[in-house]
């Protein structure tokens, strides 16, 4: 008998194609799971950004993973509301992100600071807080580009959204 927990367990194997250290659950992309039958489920996912090109790859990976576990009837639905926020990123995910070299979101969006440029983003490589914003738009829509003024390395910052 399929349960939500079993499906969630299976989905632990599905990672973000652009940030492979994060599972889609770490990202907060899975919004709901409905068991429709013995081998049938509906998975509700939400896009991080409207134009995120990873979404179709994620949907395919979810389908393949579940089919390989014997869940052959997988329906994937996109859910836009409530809009995705980095507040849904797991703490474990943030730790993994930092270890991977991407600075994780530094505050919760509910406590939005007056000016985002004032947020101190520690360097994921040397932990220095002597860093500066280079560009609000990094290698993907969800990241900004920073530079560490101590170790001089550029790095991505997963911006609060």
């Amino acid at each position: 008998m399929l349960t939500k927990e079993i499906i969630l367990n299976y989905l632990e194997a599905v990672t973000d194609p652009e940030i492979p250290v994060l599972t889609i659950q770490d990202m907060g992309i899975i919004r709901d799971i409905k068991i429709l039958g013995e081998d049938a489920v509906e998975i509700f996912i939400t896009p991080t950004y409207s134009g995120c090109p990873a979404m179709s790859a994620i949907a395919t990976n979810i389908r393949l993973e579940l089919i390989s576990r014997g869940v052959s009837n997988v329906k994937i639905s996109e859910q836009l509301s409530p809009a995705w926020t980095t507040d849904w990123m797991s703490e474990a995910g943030k730790t993994k992100l930092n270890a991977y070299g991407i600075a994780p979101p530094q505050y919760r969006t509910k406590q939005n600071p007056e000016n985002e440029q004032d947020v101190v983003v520690p360097c994921p490589l040397c932990n220095s807080t002597n860093t500066t914003l280079l560009s609000q738009f990094g290698s993907t829509a969800c990241k900004a580009l920073y530079k560490c003024k101590d170790c001089l390395e550029p790095f991505d910052y997963f911006k609060c959204h």
Partner: peptide, 14 residues
């Protein structure tokens, strides 16, 4: 360049 193409992507997504 990256900013403009990211903004393009957001718009096409919408």
């Amino acid at each position: 360049d990256m900013a403009l193409t990211n903004i393009a992507l957001d718009n096409i997504g919408a």
